[in-house]
Computed example of a mutant assay.
Amino acid sequence: MVYQTIALNVAVNSYDHALLTLLVSNQFVEIKGSVFKKFEKDNLFQITCADIVERFTLCLMLIIVGFRNLIELSGSEFDFSSGFVLPRSFGWFRGNNVLSTISYPILSVMASETIVDWLKHAFITKFNHIRPSVYERYTDVLCRDLASASAVSRLGVRKHSYVDQSPLVARRLGFASLPLAVLAILIGTQSVTLLVALQVDSNPEWTSSILPNADWAHYVKWGALAVLFWLCFVVIKLIMGVNLVIYAIKRRAGMDAREAEDTANDFGRPPIGEGKEEQAYNRELKGLLNNKRDDATPIAEIGEGVRNQNGDGGGKGKGRVKLEDLTRFTMVKRIW
C-alpha cells in the first residue's frame, strides 16, 4: 500500500499525463475483466464487496496525497490565478486558493472510479439478466452483520470465535484495517515532521518553542491541540457508528419481505430481458457443459465423491450458497 500511495502521488504531481495514463490503464483492466462474462448473484456480491474496499482505500490514499500537497503549497507565495507552472493533473482551470487547486485531481480520480464502477455493474446486470433489486439484498446482508455485531449479540453470531475475531462486516467485505492504519500513521508522522520543518524555516521565532529549553507552555499548548483533534475524530467516529447501527436496525424490518421477493425473482419468474428462445438455448448449453461423460473418474483418496450407478455424485448435492453465508473470498464454484 505504501508503494501504491507513492505511485499515485507521483502520477498526481507529474508534469506530464501520468495520472491520465494510470487511470486509463487501471479502468481498462477493470472493465475488461468484468464485462461480457457470466456472473451469478453470489459472484456479483463478491465484486460489490471488492469495489467497496477498493473505493475506500483509494479515497484514503487520495486524502493522503492531497494533505501532502496542501503542506507543500500552503507555504508557497504563488498566485494561483496567474497560471504558473503546475502538474497537468491539477487541471486547466485553477482556482484562487490552495484547496481548489489540490482538490481537482482528487475529485477527478474519484469521479472516474465511480463512473467506471457504474458502467461495470450496469453491463454485468444487463447481460446476466439480474434485477437491480439484488443490491437491496446485498445491503440487507451488510446491515444484518452490522446490527448483529453490536455489543448485545456479538458473541452469538461468530462462527469461528477462536480463529477469526475480526468484525462481521469487515470479514464479509474482505477489508483489512491494520495495513491502512499503519499507512496512515506512517504518512501522518512524516507529514507532521514536514509541517514542523516548514514552520521553523518560515518563522525563526517559532523555533524557540520546540527547543528543549523552551517554555513548557508551548508544549502544553500543542499537546492540548493534539488531544482536541483526537477527541474530535473519536466523536465523529462514534456519531457515524451510531447512525450506521440505527440505519441497519431500520432496514431489518423489511428484510424478510425483500428476501422472499429475491427468491421469487430467482426461481419463480424468468430473468428480465430473456426470451423463450434464449432460455431454451441456455438450457441446452447447460446440458452440454454438464455432460457426465466428459468427467474423469473420481478418486476417493483425494476427497472426490464416488459416483453412483446413475453417474451422479454420491450423497445429496450441495445447494446454492446463501448470501448470508457468503464472503468476499468464498469459493462459490466447486472444482470437483
Rank of each mutant, 00 (worst) to 15 (best):
S112C: 10
T101L: 15
E77D: 13
I115C: 13
T101F: 05
G83K: 04
F93G: 04
L99H: 10
N97T: 08
S81W: 05
L107V: 10
R88F: 06
F78R: 12
E113T: 09
G95W: 01
S89D: 01
Y104M: 06
L73P: 01
T101P: 03
T101E: 05
P87Y: 07
V109D: 01
S81K: 09
F84N: 00
D79K: 08
R94L: 04
S74F: 09
M110P: 03
S108L: 06
S76D: 14
L73I: 03
S76W: 03
S112F: 04
D117I: 11
S100D: 15
A111V: 10
P87N: 07
S81A: 09
I115P: 04
F80I: 00
P87V: 05
E77T: 10
R88Y: 09
E77L: 12
N97V: 02
W92C: 07
V98T: 09
S81H: 00
S103N: 13
S108E: 06
F93A: 10
W92N: 15
R88H: 11
N97C: 07
V85C: 09
V85M: 13
P105R: 01
P87E: 05
G75C: 08
R88W: 08
E77V: 10
N96K: 10
F78T: 06
Y104S: 07
I102W: 02
P87M: 06
S108T: 11
N97D: 15
T114I: 10
S100Y: 05
F90R: 00
E113D: 15
T114D: 09
F84K: 03
F90D: 01
P87S: 06
V109W: 03
D79P: 00
